[in-house]
């Protein structure tokens, strides 16, 4: 990750971007999360989900949640995209069923462009992380005559960037 990529990423994400150090991450996540919230564990040392976040939701809890928090494997600067790997913890459901999705990405995982992203995806897939969604902003439709945000997926997306990870 270069600082250029990071600032490109920040400006291309169609949604709120929160840059933070690990030390301040808890507070930033607290702010980004609206309760009730569900989530999947974050794989970054010294960063954890707010205590209010349910990491083992039932379908009804999932449906009722206002926020879903998941880690992102990559940020793609040129597009403002994050990739959400789908695992047994239910990342796909958490990032999809809630009206607000908060993705947490390490700055070192922000790559400049799509070719670089696909190189990384190739490595991930070979290592068995072979289902990921490239998510860019809220879900949307134009089928009802004009652009409407928030259809079957989130209407609001946040990305938390861990600057020192």
């Amino acid at each position: 990750m270069s600082s250029e990529s990071l600032s490109t990423f920040e400006s291309s994400v169609p949604g709120d971007v929160h840059r933070t150090t690990t030390a301040d991450a808890d507070a930033v996540l607290d702010d980004a999360v609206e309760e009730p919230a569900v989530g999947t564990a974050l794989p970054y040392d010294d960063v954890s989900l707010p205590g209010s976040v349910d990491t083992d939701p039932s379908p009804s809890t999932l449906e009722a949640a206002a926020t879903g928090v998941t880690p992102a494997a990559l940020g793609i600067a040129e597009y403002g995209t994050v990739t959400i790997p789908s695992g047994a913890a239910g990342d796909e459901l958490v990032s999809l069923y809630t009206p607000r999705h908060v993705a947490v990405v390490a700055a070192s995982d922000v790559v400049p462009d799509m070719p670089t992203a696909y190189e990384r995806l190739g490595e991930d897939f070979a290592a068995g992380m072979d289902t990921q969604v490239l998510a860019t902003g809220p879900s949307a439709t134009a089928d009802m005559g004009t652009l409407v945000q928030g259809v079957h997926g989130p209407s609001e997306t946040h990305v938390v960037v861990l600057e020192d990870r």
């Binding site: 597009y79 995209t81 789908s86 695992g87 047994a88 239910g90 990342d91 796909e92 459901l93 995806l121 897939f125 072979d130 289902t131 990921q132 969604v133 490239l134 998510a135 860019t136 902003g137 809220p138 879900s139 949307a140 997926g153």
Partner: peptide, 15 residues
């Protein structure tokens, strides 16, 4: 890019 480009390798691991 569209909101979602899903790359899924089913059957997936999601519960």
């Amino acid at each position: 890019i569209t909101s979602y480009v899903s790359l899924l390798t089913p059957p997936v691991d999601s519960p």
